[in-house]
Design a protein around this nucleic acid. Structure first.
Lengths: 237, 237
DNA sequence: AAGGTTAAACTGGTTTACCAGATTGGTTTA
DNA sequence: TAAACCAATCTGGTAAACCAGTTTAACCTT
């Protein structure tokens, strides 16, 4: 499906897959396929491109993830209701996608979280509040023991994203968070001094969401990330 | 040929896949697999869960996309360097993901674009500027002819995202944009009156990025989306 | 008994064969 | 003539066999 920020970059596969994707694009252009038209069958394509049908299927799945193609069982694979221009542009962008670096991930996460926390403060239900409280308690308990609480930290933030009531934002958060976490672990970003400060910050963020104080929740999250960002890069945000 | 591209049978497939994913999660918990540990082979899992190996592979690919698993050829599938807690939390979130609705997509797009335009104004290279100009010209030309220029509109915005110099943001934009576009087409959101206003707005945004006027670029983008949002929902942003 | 060697087994990936439902075009029927 | 029907065909999906590295462990050598 995606694809895929992480799953694509198996350097082995990516070369071949990108090759197939560009060939599919070329075919669509050559045959002047219009939105909604049917692509040749997987068998035909695999013969035409002289690659295995599996490889074709994989490439199609990637393009399905971006909403460019759609496979319908026992019927065929269809190009989305995008025009040829948009389709070409999108495929080219996808083929030229750079691998996200840690800094851009953090930058994106901060952006997303400043939004999710505001939306959560506006829209959170009682049940979502309860869920956030549980995540907060789990985090606090672990942090107070002096143990590494990166995971519980993450889950608290994901609980906020969930409470934002925006499935799209929630999905994007889920996509980038694991990469952030693994990088955190890799570079040992989080220091012990951050842990205790984190407890207070998390608690205050939770309170702001509970009180539906939109502005305050955002400010607190900003502060929360400010110290983190500074710790990572030795520069102010 | 008027084929309907609707994802109906996906529900069936997704149900099975989610079922397998939760079983994998349960297995990891039951066996107390730690970060970096190896999952049973695909054959074992397919036998254990009584599903086809293809289905297992598909589920694993999904989890790979979210960075939770990693398959290594001729070796095995390994759980990411996330702790058990984070892993459980993430999988549960993934299983409970809601399908994004149009409004949440627009909300997310506005958020992302207000950021990409600011970053583009800061970081754009001359080459990226040239790329944006091309997209802008293509849009203007088509819009002036009174034709539907949704695709060219989209490509201009994607060019901005590219110029933001943030691959992560760029990827997220590519993920949500097609869905937005198809919804636009479906609901016929864009009116003709919007087109000519759009030309001026796009041009002024481009100029702001060219002049590296960060604040102005953001303000202009805000206005650009304001009218759009208002048009969509009959409410102010 | 320890270390090196090798072959059998096990792995994810790939190819091949098969399946059930959708499509299609010719035939039948009103 | 046109609508209805039906079987041959074509489709993506699925299952099973096969492949090429990797891992493992038994075996031989020292």
């Amino acid at each position: 499906m995606f694809m895929k920020i992480e799953a694509l970059n198996k350097t082995d596969n990516r070369g071949l897959q990108n090759d197939i994707i560009s060939k599919i694009r070329d075919h669509i252009n050559y045959k002047n396929l219009e939105p909604g038209d049917k692509l040749p069958s997987e068998r035909m394509l695999s013969e035409k491109f002289e690659v295995s049908r599996s490889a074709i299927r994989e490439a199609i799945q990637s393009l399905e993830f971006y909403g460019i193609l759609e496979s319908i069982p026992q019927s065929g694979t269809f190009v989305a209701k995008l025009g040829v221009t948009a389709l070409n542009g999108m495929i080219n962008e996808i083929l030229n996608l750079e691998e996200p670096d840690f800094k851009s991930l953090v930058e994106t996460r901060i952006l997303l979280e400043l939004k999710t926390v505001r939306l959560a403060a506006q829209r959170r239900t009682e049940e979502q509040l309860k869920h956030m409280k549980q995540a907060l308690d789990a985090y606090t308990e672990k942090a107070l023991l002096g143990e590494d609480a990166v995971q519980e930290d993450l889950l608290f933030h994901l609980a906020i994203a969930k409470a934002s009531g925006n499935p799209s934002l929630n999905t994007l958060m889920l996509i980038i968070t694991p990469e952030i976490i693994t990088n955190f672990e890799k570079y040992h970003v989080c220091g012990d001094d951050q842990t205790f400060k984190g407890i207070e910050e998390h608690k205050s963020i939770f309170e702001a969401i509970k009180n539906k104080d939109v502005q305050k929740s955002k400010e607190l999250m900003k502060v929360h990330f400010k110290s983190l960002y500074k710790y990572c890069y030795n520069v102010d945000l």
